[in-house]
Design a protein around this nucleic acid. Structure first.
Length: 272
DNA sequence: TACCAGGTAAAAA
DNA sequence: TTTTTACATGGT
């Protein structure tokens, strides 16, 4: 892994919101299915150890752990431009945003998380995974797009989806859109393509850029937790509107994704 | 028991 | 055009 890197901080989100059958945390290792097989990712001096030891898996694991982010430039930016952010960066050394490996998984996960707490979202998503996903060893493969396309909206409602979220997920599964192909487009075109789908608004599209594609300047201004974090660290706890949060984010360009992630983890880990 | 939680779309004003 | 409302679940 490129340095700096903290395995503990980067994997924090896999332990923060409850049990996840897709990203299984057990005995200090993250188990999940990548490229059709289950891997166990554990800490090693200066990086990670992957089991089974397979060079083919090294690239997707690095991507999963946010290896593509330029933490050196970000830390230099924070140190010179923003004392508040600099304090958080210093308190969270080596924190990288982990990325959802698959665009379909990223979008369905976000749909489940719309409006509700991440714990509630995870509980519902877990039922979807256990109903439609395939279990490998300790981790489930996320249900495929074809599996959900073949399902009924009522099937998803039975798992705790609202009627509308069930419709969104099935419609996404059946939509004639090449989700992998989105990666070739610039941020604004990806957002336009996604927001055109039912149930995908700006928040979901922004998180797709941030936590699936790892785009450096993604900034989910509509995110309630991000608004709370900006409020807590910069405005003494006074509420911010979505527009105010979007405007405020300009100060973090071109590192808005790392800034957002740092603020969100900061909210859980570093007192304002 | 209420109320809030890492939104979205449609109805109402 | 802007504001209000329904949505379904889990945690407190």
């Amino acid at each position: 892994m490129p340095q700096p890197f903290s395995f503990e901080l980067t994997t924090e989100r896999y332990r923060a919101f409850g049990l996840d059958p897709v990203n299984v945390w057990e005995d200090g290792r993250l188990h999940r299915v990548l490229a059709g097989q289950e891997v166990a990712i554990g800490e090693a001096p200066g990086g990670v150890r992957i089991a089974p030891d397979d060079r083919v898996l090294a690239a997707p694991v690095q991507r999963l752990l946010g290896a593509g982010f330029d933490l050196v430039s970000f830390a230099a930016f924070a140190a010179t431009e923003d004392p508040v952010l600099a304090r958080l960066v210093a308190a969270l050394p080596g924190l990288r945003p982990s990325l959802a490996p698959d665009p379909w998984e990223a979008l369905v996960t976000s749909i489940t998380a719309q409006q509700v707490s991440l714990r509630a979202a995870l509980a519902i998503r877990a039922r979807l995974v256990e109903a439609y996903g395939v279990r490998h060893d300790r981790a489930y493969a996320f249900p495929t797009r074809a599996q959900v396309a073949a399902a009924d909206s009522d099937d998803l409602r039975a798992l705790g989806f609202s009627a509308r979220k069930a419709d969104y997920a099935v419609a996404l599964a059946r939509a004639p859109l090449d989700l992998d192909g989105l990666a070739a487009l610039p941020d604004d075109e990806i957002k336009a393509a996604l927001v055109a789908l039912p149930g995908i608004g700006e928040w979901t599209a922004d998180w797709f850029l941030a936590r699936h594609l790892g785009r450096p300047d993604a900034w989910p201004a509509g995110d309630l937790a991000l608004r709370k974090a900006v409020s807590a660290y910069y405005f003494g706890g006074d509420d911010l509107s979505i527009d105010e949060t979007r405007t405020f984010g300009a100060r973090f360009g071109p590192h808005r994704n790392l800034a957002a992630h740092t603020l969100l983890v900061g909210l859980r880990r570093v007192s304002p």
